[in-house]
Design a protein around this nucleic acid. Structure first.
Lengths: 253, 253
DNA sequence: GCTGTTATGCGTAGACCATACGCAGAACTA
DNA sequence: TAGTTCTGCGTATGGTCTACGCATAACAGC
């Protein structure tokens, strides 16, 4: 209730308001030569091509044929630009679950959707997030996730916690695999040689008497063969969903 | 096998080697005025006091009464320093589980230990990690975690996956709560007012028809009262451990 | 049509940052 | 004593974000 009657309350960054379409152009002054979406798209293009580190205000401006400082008419700070980049970088949410899908199938699809986004936009993982989501598409993802749990007996707070749990897992998994990929590129090693090399390094460093369990893992050759990363992802996700299932079963239907 | 007979193989950063104590001082030249641990301690002190963003080479040097460039005699790059900061920032691992503890109690203790470290050293979460752990104390944490699963029927690879799962969860939870804390400090709001303010903002932005599930969550007031963060942490951890328990039960003992 | 107001584009400049390079001198070996 | 090698660090380069202010373009009202 009282959604619109709220005073405008806590100051929202201007660029965020314009992302929600709550901002009419003032009728005076020269016509703007760019727009917030144009700038954000350019920044995303740079990040896609050369990584997040390449996204500097001057680089984005160059991409648009504009001067560096021109961007600051549209975006309050670089952090604000980053927030908007995350929003468009994630893209539209995967949509509500199919009507006949149960919660587990729905959340699995939801998790894989985020997984897929993060796989080919790994720079999203490097953006320092500075708070809970307030951009349109981000909240769209949240909405779609919540809907997966609609039929269950979980409380609203529990639903939220479950979503946070899953999203955190997906991000974490993506972070690890992207680190391996980036590390191998940086060291000029074949990606498939990365984990074996790591395994050899650790083996050289540790004393088996002080690190017996770790030594056993290495001896088992676990880190040698690069598992199919998708299997690794599925393993963890299934563990988490098993845990959620145990919780749901415990509730009276 | 063949731990020492390995050639020195992949080039390890010099400062890492010295962290493992594999580096004797060359007998010539002037005696060094500082040491790697001295520098790392100073950097940690800066991060503890003013956050990771305050850790610049010049700031650390000032802390030591030295010139900026003097540090580069000991540390190859800032990234290398950061890696060492993480190692000493985590501190010594919590130690092996008590003999009478089952795996679940052991992992719970292990997870809480990391949780506690991250709670009062939240800058650890902001360090961009660039690969799997190779520093002594980091591997110590890994060892202690693995030992918790020693009695179970899990394979070595599964043990590793479980650990990754838990550590990822702990980091993620800590990231979220520290974001709320930092956000409130940045906005000058009481920490306890942070989530209510967020809730109000989202309520103002979303259209209940397009975001029905989210609207329901808000209406339930879930985000209003700042849950005891420890309860939130326990909830997620128990979900994950339930999932692990389901896996272990499925294995023949 | 003229004038005042306002918003835009952007040049300049300041305050940081990491770090490549090279030199003076210290501490050791022979 | 001569030679070698390592330390400390001054200087300089090229990058970052962004505060500030000016010229100009476009509209509102008279």
């Amino acid at each position: 209730m009282a959604a619109k009657t709220d005073d405008s309350g806590p100051k929202l960054p201007p660029a965020i308001e314009s992302a929600w379409g709550l901002r009419e152009r003032p009728p005076k002054g020269p016509r703007p030569g760019m727009s917030v979406p144009t700038i954000v798209d350019a920044a995303v293009r740079v990040a896609d091509a050369d990584g997040l580190a390449a996204v500097s205000m001057s680089r984005v401006a160059k991409e648009l044929g504009a001067a560096t400082m021109a961007l600051y008419r549209y975006v309050g700070s670089k952090d604000e630009l980053l927030m908007l980049m995350v929003d468009t970088g994630y893209g539209p949410s995967p949509g509500p679950p199919a009507a006949e899908a149960d919660w587990r199938a729905g959340l699995t699809r939801w998790a894989w959707a985020e997984h897929d986004v993060l796989r080919h936009r790994s720079w999203l993982l490097h953006v320092p997030i500075s708070g809970p989501p307030i951009t349109p598409q981000q909240l769209g993802w949240m909405e779609d996730g919540l809907r997966c749990l609609d039929g269950t007996a979980l409380g609203e707070g529990e639903k939220m916690s479950v979503l946070l749990l899953i999203t955190g897992y997906v991000r974490n998994e993506a972070t690890l695999t992207s680190q391996v990929a980036e590390g191998s590129r940086a060291a000029g090693v074949e990606p498939s040689e990365m984990m074996p090399a790591y395994s050899r390094t650790v083996a050289r460093l540790i004393d088996p008497a002080r690190f017996p369990a770790l030594h056993r893992v290495l001896a088992a050759g676990v880190l040698h063969q690069a598992d199919n990363p998708d299997d690794e992802f599925t393993f963890g996700l299934d563990r988490i969903l098993d845990g959620v299932e145990a919780l749901i079963r415990r509730r009276p239907a």
